[in-house]
Design a protein around this nucleic acid. Structure first.
Lengths: 170, 170
DNA sequence: CAGCTTACGTCAGTGTTGTTGACATTCCAA
DNA sequence: TTGGAATGTCAACAACACTGACGTAAGCTG
């Protein structure tokens, strides 16, 4: 009955029957919602000859300035060849700066330039506006539930990355 | 204060302050969770020389048997040429059957074959298992919130498609 | 110091999935 | 019946992911 108080995992709430139909609806909700989630940035990016991959890179470089290529690789979950193609264009276009590490000269630390910040702002404005509207429509209680389910859906490694970024920005 | 009672839209809940940081966390939660969401089917599909597009087609054909190509197109939000490539391989591999419409011979009605059902089952088993675990971990209250936020995040057109499918399967 | 590992970049090749353009078939209505 | 709209197919191309191989520079360890 009480809503908090179990430290971890499942165990409580054995009342929770989940029919296949409910689960399927959850799956479809994820599918359709993700489309909406990416729709606004995609429209902006299409005009700039950039894609979702560029958006992701810019987002996380903004979020963790000075991050290394390797770290970004782990967060994005792509191969270095794939990321490199994206970073190369962003650097060539003057949106991202790559600085050789002071302590470890093998590392490259990534930063957004002024133009890079401008693009990030433009993209995240659109995405945040949609998120804000959705949160408002759904109500404050829903927001907590939304976040709890999403967090539980992540692979453990990604959950850690997510938590690290949360602390980072708090 | 009361949690229900407003017919539509926003308007209530002006108490709901949303900082950029909260919104950013929501964005990142969507990103990481979607990765988890697709991870299990992706692993299965990789062995079969199929991709996410095949999964989506099989999912929605199972969900709405006899659907037309055009209808599927609207749900998936891709071009007919893109969908056609996927359908062609699924038909060639005997997972999907395409029947010429009786009333309108231009239309093709799509059905899963026995093998198609088997694949759909295998894929959705994996995805439902993750969804079930996530729902259980997050608790019953969270599930409602999750669904409300996702629904509010969809484009209106997709919200209608989602609602239609819900009725269909209820 | 020598040799191994790590971090990063790059080249080449492949596969999936999206796109546009062109086209055939079918239906319907003027 | 003829012309336009709708439905679906084929062909070619672009974006972005992947694997595999290789090169370079820098750090680490015995």
């Amino acid at each position: 009955m009480r809503d908090t108080g179990m430290g971890a995992g499942l165990g409580g709430e054995s009342l929770l029957f989940l029919t296949d139909e409910q689960l399927r609806q959850g799956i479809e909700a994820m599918f359709f919602a993700y489309r909406g989630f990416t729709a606004d940035p995609d429209r902006i990016l299409a005009d700039l000859a950039y894609g979702r991959a560029h958006h992701r890179a810019v987002h996380f470089i903004n979020r963790a300035p000075g991050t290394t290529v390797n770290n970004l690789l782990n967060i994005l979950g792509v191969t270095k060849q794939s990321l490199n193609r994206v970073l190369r264009t962003l650097i060539a276009d003057g949106l991202v700066e790559s600085r050789v590490g002071q302590h470890d000269k093998r590392e490259r630390h990534l930063f957004l330039t002024e133009d890079g910040h401008a693009l990030e702002q433009k993209l995240s404005d659109a995405q945040r506006a949609r998120m804000r509207t959705a949160f408002r429509e759904a109500g404050p209680d829903a927001v907590g539930g939304f976040r709890r389910v999403l967090e539980a859906m992540m692979d453990p490694e990604m959950r850690r990355a997510y938590a690290r970024l949360k602390e980072n920005g708090s």
